[in-house]
């Protein structure tokens, strides 16, 4: 790849991480976002699993894009995605059973995560493998950041720990609500509020400077 391409590639990558962040901007994939972000470890594992599936399946979809008839494209995407999800499923079982139990059905449910199918249909099916995978990686990283943002807050308040390390000592009073489903909604809402406030603030400031 030439050096002239680099900024564009970087842009492509940052598209998913920031401007089109799947959690904060597109609000996609809410099912795992709300369900598994009880702790930072869970969140980051889920994010990485999704990232892997996203990059691999987008790469394969993009490779096959020339000879995939449009009548069967969704079937092809789903088979490809399901394959990599199965591989991830085995891999997580091999790494840690405790993690596997904590993530539960949500590993298998990556198959129906609309971020992945959306990327395959909207981007990978129309682009060469390299840009497709970079775009997918950006989305995956963005998703991981989103999950981590929720997981960190919920773990700190809900258990007083971060990545399993106690932050406040023995006497910490856990906020039980944070590890229950309502806590997921509250924290997600708070992040969305913060994110949209920040995203709107910047153009306003720029406009103010121009005046």
């Amino acid at each position: 790849m030439s050096t002239a391409d680099t900024p564009q590639t970087w842009d492509e990558f940052m598209e998913g991480v920031w401007r089109q962040n799947p959690v904060f901007v597109m609000v996609l994939g809410m099912c795992p976002t709300l369900a598994v972000t009880v702790s930072a470890i869970n969140a980051i594992s889920m994010g990485l699993a999704t990232l892997f599936v996203l990059v691999c399946s987008c790469g394969l979809v993009s490779l096959m894009r020339r000879f995939t008839p449009k009548e069967v494209r969704i079937a092809v995407y789903i088979v490809i995605i399901a394959t990599f999800v199965t591989a991830v499923d085995y891999a997580i079982q091999a790494i840690s059973l405790a993690l596997y139990e904590a993530l539960g059905a949500f590993i298998q449910l990556i198959v129906v995560n609309c971020i992945i199918l959306g990327r395959a249909e909207a981007h990978a099916a129309k682009n060469a493998p390299m840009p497709a995978m970079i775009n997918a990686a950006g989305m995956g990283v963005g998703f991981t950041i989103g999950l981590l943002a929720l997981g960190v807050v919920r773990e700190i308040l809900g258990a007083g720990t971060l990545f399993g390390v106690a932050l406040f000592g023995a006497g910490f009073q856990p906020w039980v609500i944070m590890v229950l489903p309502p806590g997921g909604f509250f924290v997600l809402g708070a992040w969305l509020l913060l994110f949209s406030w920040w995203a709107r603030r910047r153009p306003l400031k720029e406009a103010a400077q121009n005046v």
Partner: peptide, 9 residues
Amino acid sequence: RFLPNKPKK
């Protein structure tokens, strides 16, 4: 609006 004083262009 969420923000009070939107500067006019």
